[in-house]
C-alpha cells in the first residue's frame, strides 16, 4: 500500500518529513531489521540510502542542525551495529556497502558544490541541501565505507579461501596430462571421494554468486571492479604460496593445469566485461610460475629466457620452483644445481625483497569514485513492506 494519499509527483519536493522521536524507529526498521534477503530483494537498488537522504533533506530544509546531526549519527551507528551483528554474511555487508556509498554520493550530488553538480538536472539542483555543509560528515561516511569494504573482503576471503588450493591446484580437469604422479609422492586428495572436493567450477560459481549479489544491490561498477581485483589477488596469492610449498605441485603437468585454470578465470572476466579492472594482472606471478614449470631449464639461453620472463616473481620464488621441480615423465629432467646457480647469478643485481611467500592479507587501497544518480527524488515511493508509514512525503 502506498504510504501517503496519492498526490501528483510534481507536487513533491523529494523530502521525507519525520518527527524527532521517530528517528530510532526509522533506523530500526530501515537498517537494523531490514533483511537483504527478504524485503530488500524487491527494492530499487539504494532505496534505503535515498530514503535516509530524503529524511536528511527535510531536517536540513527546516534548518534544524541538531536533527541533522542526530540522524547522521544514528544512521552511521546503526550501519556499524548491523555489520557487527551480521558481518560474516556477504549479502548483508554488500547491501550496506552499496547503500553507504549511495548515501555518500547523494551527500555529494546534492551538496550544492559545483564539482558534484555537473550531471544534475535543473530539478536535482533545486533539491540541493539549503542550510548545511556536510563535508565533514562525508569524510566520516567515507571512512565507514572503507571499513565496510574491508569487512566485505574478509567475508569474501573466508568463503573463497577453502576452495582455492583444491580448485586451482589439486583438482585435475585436464585428462591424461598427469596420469603419472611424481614418484614417491602421494596425491593428497586421492583418498577422498570427489564430493566435498572443490573444483575450479566451485570457484567460478562462487565468483558468479558474489558478482550477482553486488549487481543486485546496485553496487557501483567501479567498486565491483575493485572487489574482483581483490578476489583474483587472493586466488593468485594462495595458489602460488601453496605451489611454493609443495613439491607435488611443481611439475610440468601442474603447470599445464594451472594455465588452463587461469584461462578459465580470464574467460570469466571477459564474460563479465571486467578485463580492464586489473584483476588479470594480479595473477601474473602465478602465470609466470606455471610457465616456469613448463619451459626448458637446461642451457644458458633457457636461463636468460627465464630471467626475462619471470619479472613478477622474486629470485627466491624462481629458485624455489626450480628446486622443487619434479619430473613425472621420462622426457622430463630434474633441474641441475648448475642451472639454478646460473639463474641466481643472473638475477643478483635485481633490487627486490627476499620474500618467498606472497602476502595473502594484502588489501589494495579502495576508492569510491563519485557516481551521481539520475533518479528523481520526488518520484520515490516507499513500499509498505518497509513499515515506514510514519514518514510523510513532502
Amino acid at each position: 500500500h502506498p504510504v501517503n494519499i496519492p498526490r501528483r509527483e510534481k507536487d513533491f519536493q523529494g523530502m521525507l518529513e519525520y518527527k524527532k522521536e521517530d528517528e530510532l524507529k526509522l533506523v530500526k526498521n530501515l537498517i537494523l531489521e531490514l533483511k537483504p534477503r527478504g524485503v530488500a530483494v524487491n527494492l530499487i537498488p539504494g532505496l534505503p540510502a535515498y530514503i535516509l537522504f530524503m529524511c536528511l533533506r527535510h531536517a536540513d530544509y527546516v534548518n534544524d542542525d541538531q536533527k541533522v546531526r542526530s540522524l547522521l549519527t544514528s544512521v552511521i551507528n546503526s550501519i556499524k551495529k548491523i555489520l557487527k551483528k551480521r558481518g560474516d554474511d556477504f549479502e548483508t555487508v554488500s547491501f550496506w556497502l552499496s547503500n553507504t556509498c549511495r548515501f555518500l554520493h547523494c551527500l555529494k550530488q546534492y551538496s550544492g558544490d559545483d564539482q558534484f553538480m555537473k550531471h544534475n538536472t535543473p530539478k536535482q539542483n533545486d533539491h540541493c541541501l539549503s542550510n548545511f555543509d556536510l563535508a565533514e560528515y562525508r569524510q566520516v561516511l567515507s571512512d565507514l565505507a572503507i571499513q565496510i569494504y574491508q569487512q566485505l573482503i574478509k567475508c569474501m576471503e573466508n568463503i573463497l579461501q577453502p576452495m582455492i588450493v583444491s580448485g586451482m591446484l589439486e583438482h585435475e580437469t585436464i585428462q591424461g596430462v598427469s596420469g603419472v604422479k611424481p614418484t614417491g609422492l602421494r596425491k593428497r586428495t586421492s583418498s577422498i571421494a570427489d564430493e566435498g572436493t572443490y573444483t575450479l567450477d566451485s570457484i567460478i560459481r562462487q565468483l558468479n554468486t558474489f558478482h550477482s549479489i553486488m549487481c543486485q544491490h546496485g553496487t557501483d561498477p567501479e567498486l565491483i571492479k575493485q572487489v574482483v581485483k581483490q578476489q583474483f589477488y587472493i586466488i593468485g596469492a594462495v595458489t602460488l604460496n601453496n605451489l611454493l610449498l609443495r613439491k607435488d605441485m611443481c611439475s610440468w603437468s601442474k603447470g599445464m593445469q594451472i594455465r588452463y585454470n587461469v584461462s578459465q578465470l580470464e574467460e570469466w572476466l571477459r564474460d563479465k566485461n571486467l578485463m580492464t579492472c586489473g584483476a588479470k594482472e594480479t595473477l601474473e606471478p602465478l602465470i609466470q610460475a606455471a610457465q616456469l614449470l613448463q619451459v626448458k631449464k637446461k642451457t644458458d639461453e633457457d636461463a636468460e629466457a627465464i630471467c626475462s620472463m619471470c619479472n613478477a616473481l622474486s629470485t627466491a620464488q624462481i629458485v624455489k620452483v626450480l628446486n622443487l621441480y619434479t619430473p613425472v615423465n621420462a622426457f622430463e629432467e630434474r633441474v641441475s644445481v648448475l642451472f639454478i646457480r646460473t639463474i641466481q647469478t643472473r638475477l643478483r643485481d635485481r633490487k627486490e625483497s627476499p620474500q618467498l611467500l606472497m602476502d595473502t592479507k594484502l588489501i589494495y587501497p579502495v576508492t569510491f569514485p563519485f557516481n551521481p544518480s539520475s533518479l528523481a527524488l520526488e518520484t520515490i515511493q516507499i513500499p509498505g513492506s518497509l513499515n515506514l508509514a510514519f514518514l510523510t512525503r513532502v
Binding site: 533506523v27 542542525d65 551507528n77 551495529k81 550544492g112 541541501l129 548545511f132 556536510l134 560528515y137 565507514l144
Partner: peptide, 30 residues
C-alpha cells in the same frame, strides 16, 4: 532560492567518537 547560498559547516565527530554516542543504550544495558 539563490543558486550559491552560504551553508553552515556542521562539525562532525570521528567515526570512533560517534560510537560513544550510543543511541541504543536502553537495549544494550544488561
Amino acid at each position: 532560492r539563490p543558486p550559491s547560498r552560504i551553508r553552515v559547516l556542521l562539525k562532525a565527530p570521528t567515526l570512533e567518537e560517534m560510537e560513544e554516542m550510543n543511541i541504543f543504550e536502553d537495549e544494550e544495558s544488561p
